[in-house]
Design a protein around this nucleic acid. Structure first.
Length: 414
RNA sequence: GUGGGCGUAGCUCAGCUGGUAGAGCUCCGGAUUGUGGUUCCGGCUGUCGCGGGUUCAAAUCCCGUCGCCCACCCCA
C-alpha cells in the first residue's frame, strides 16, 4: 500500500461481496416481516435541514452537539442524517399522512452518519433498519412493534436471542417531577461518585443512572426510580405494554435505569442488548415519541419506532456461504466459445448461475478454474461435443461425467 | 475530544541484544496441447506506514506524525 494511495475515509468502509450476500439476506427478511405487519417503505433524503435534527433530536444531545456532518450549502445549513426518525416524522407531516386511514406504518433501510471515533460496531457511516408507527398512543402498538422485532430476529436466526430491556420515561406531566427529585438526590451524593457522573449530574442527570462504574452502583441503587414517579396515565400505559408482551410470550426485563440519548422519547423505551458485541452491546433501540411531531412544527401525532444497528446485527450473524457457479463452461476452441455463449444465455434465463471464461485456455487450466471457483458442474464443449450435439457435463464433486443433448441439459437445470 | 495496543508481500505473520527482508497461503506459469481438487518445479509483488534523529550501518533504538484496532464519552 503506497503512501499516496487513496483509501476509504475514517469510519466508512466497503462491503465486499462475501459480506453483502448476508446483508441482502437480512434486508430481504426485514422487508418480508415489515410487509406482513403492514409496514410500507419510505425513502427519505440523506440530507436534511440542520434544524430538523436540532429541534427533533435535541440540541443538547451528543448527536447534535458534536457528532453531525453539517455543511453550508450556499447559505443553508444542511446535515447528513444521523438517524431517520426525525426525517420520517417530517415526511409524515409534509405529506399529511395522518389523512390516510388507520395507523401510518413506515419502514426504512439505509445509511446514517455520525462523526464519532470509530470502534467495534460503530462507524461514521452505519446502516439502520427501522420502522415507525405513527398516529396512535395505544400500548398495543408498542407491544406489536416489539413483537415484530422479536419475530424478525427469530427469522434471521439470531442465536442466542438478545435481552429486551424495557422502561418508561413518563411524559410531560410526570417526567419533570422525576427529574427534580433526581437532581436533588444527586446534590447530596454526587461528590462520592465518579468524575463522569459529577459532570452528568449537571448536564444530563438521567445518564447518571446508566453509569457502569462499579463503585457508583450502590449509590445509583439509592436514587429515585422513574417508575415510582410515573403519573396515572403513564403508569397504566406501561403496565399494559407489559401485559401485552407477556400475552405474546415475549421475555423482557424492566430496566428503570435504562435511559435513551435522544430528547424526543416519551413513555415506552426499549433496547435489545447482546453480550457478544463488545462495548457497543446494543443491537437496536427504540421508543415512543408522542411529542416529536409538534416539536418540529406539525400537529400532535403520537408515534413509536425503533432502529436496528444493521452493522451490529450482521456482526452477530456470522458469515453467509460464498456464492458459487452452477456451471463453468469449459470451451476449447472459437467455435465452441460461440456455442458456450448461447447455451449460457439459455441457462441463465432459467436462473442457472453460469460462468463463461473470457479467453481461450488449456483444458487443464479451465478445469482448475472451475474447481477453484467451486463450480458444481463443468460443461465441456469441444469439437467432439459439437459434432455429436451431445455435451459433456461433469459433476465436480464426484468426477462423474455424462453426455447430454441441449434439451436434456436444459431439462436438467430447470 | 481522551486513553491504550498495533503498523513488514494481496492475506496471516517471522525477523533475538542494530549489519540494509523472509515463511506459509494466495496469484501466475510449467510438469499435463480433451479433464480439476493431491504432488513436484519455477515466477511476480515490499519506498519494513511516513518524516526526522542517533550510528560506519536502522525493519530493529529515539522523537514526531499518520493510519488501523480496542476502550472511554455517547450511542444503533
Amino acid at each position: 500500500m503506497g503512501t499516496n494511495t487513496i483509501r476509504a475515509v475514517k469510519g466508512m468502509r466497503d462491503l465486499l461481496p462475501f459480506e453483502t450476500t448476508l446483508w441482502n439476506r437480512v434486508e430481504a427478511q426485514a422487508r418480508e416481516v415489515f410487509r406482513v405487519y403492514g409496514y410500507g417503505e419510505i425513502r427519505t433524503p440523506l440530507v436534511e435541514e440542520t434544524q430538523l435534527f436540532a429541534r427533533g433530536v435535541g440540541a443538547e444531545t451528543d448527536i447534535v452537539s458534536k457528532e453531525m456532518y453539517t455543511f453550508d450549502d450556499h447559505g443553508d445549513s444542511l446535515t447528513l442524517r444521523p438517524e431517520a426518525t426525525a426525517s420520517v416524522v417530517r415526511a409524515y407531516i409534509e405529506h399529511s399522512l395522518s389523512r390516510n386511514p388507520g395507523l401510518t406504518k413506515l419502514y426504512y433501510i439505509g445509511p446514517m452518519f455520525r462523526r464519532e471515533r470509530p470502534q467495534k460496531g460503530r462507524y461514521r457511516q452505519f446502516f439502520q433498519i427501522g420502522a415507525e408507527a405513527i398516529g396512535s398512543d395505544s400500548p398495543a402498538v408498542d407491544a406489536e412493534i416489539i413483537e415484530m422485532l422479536w419475530d424478525f430476529l427469530g427469522r434471521v436466526k439470531l442465536d442466542p436471542m438478545p435481552e429486551i430491556l424495557l422502561n418508561s420515561l413518563g411524559d410531560g406531566a410526570c417526567r419533570p417531577q422525576f427529574l427534580e427529585a433526581l437532581k436533588s438526590a444527586l446534590t447530596g451524593v454526587k461528590d462520592r461518585m465518579c468524575s463522569d457522573c459529577q459532570r452528568r449530574a449537571e448536564t444530563n442527570p438521567l445518564r447518571v443512572l446508566d453509569c457502569k462504574v462499579p463503585a457508583d452502583q450502590e449509590i445509583i441503587e439509592g436514587l429515585p426510580k422513574i417508575t415510582e414517579f410515573l403519573c396515572e396515565p403513564c403508569r397504566d400505559h406501561y403496565a399494559r405494554v407489559q401485559e401485552y408482551l407477556t400475552m405474546r410470550h415475549i421475555p423482557f426485563t424492566p430496566t428503570p435505569r435504562m435511559v435513551r440519548g435522544l430528547d424526543y422519547y416519551t413513555r415506552t423505551t426499549f433496547e435489545f442488548v447482546h453480550g457478544s458485541l463488545g462495548a457497543q452491546n446494543s443491537v437496536l433501540g427504540g421508543g415512543r415519541y408522542d411529542g416529536l411531531a409538534e416539536t418540529i412544527g406539525g400537529p400532535r401525532a403520537p408515534g413509536i419506532g425503533f432502529s436496528i444497528g444493521e452493522d451490529r446485527l450482521i456482526n452477530l450473524l456470522g458469515e453467509a456461504p460464498a456464492a458459487r457457479p452452477d456451471i463453468y463452461m469449459v470451451w476449447l476452441d472459437p467455435e465452441s466459445q460461440k456455442c458456450a455463449i448461447s447455451m449460457a444465455a439459455d441457462l441463465r434465463a432459467r436462473g442457472v448461475v453460469v460462468e463463461v471464461p473470457p479467453e481461450a485456455r488449456k483444458m487443464g487450466k479451465l478445469m482448475e478454474q472451475a474447481s477453484k471457483l467451486s463450480a458444481r458442474f463443468a460443461l465441456i464443449i469441444g469439437e467432439t461435443e459439437r459434432v455429436s450435439a451431445r455435451y459433456t457435463l461433469k459433476d465436480m464433486s464426484t468426477g462423474a461425467q455424462e453426455t447430454l443433448s441441449v434439451d436434456e441439459l436444459t431439462k436438467r437445470f430447470s
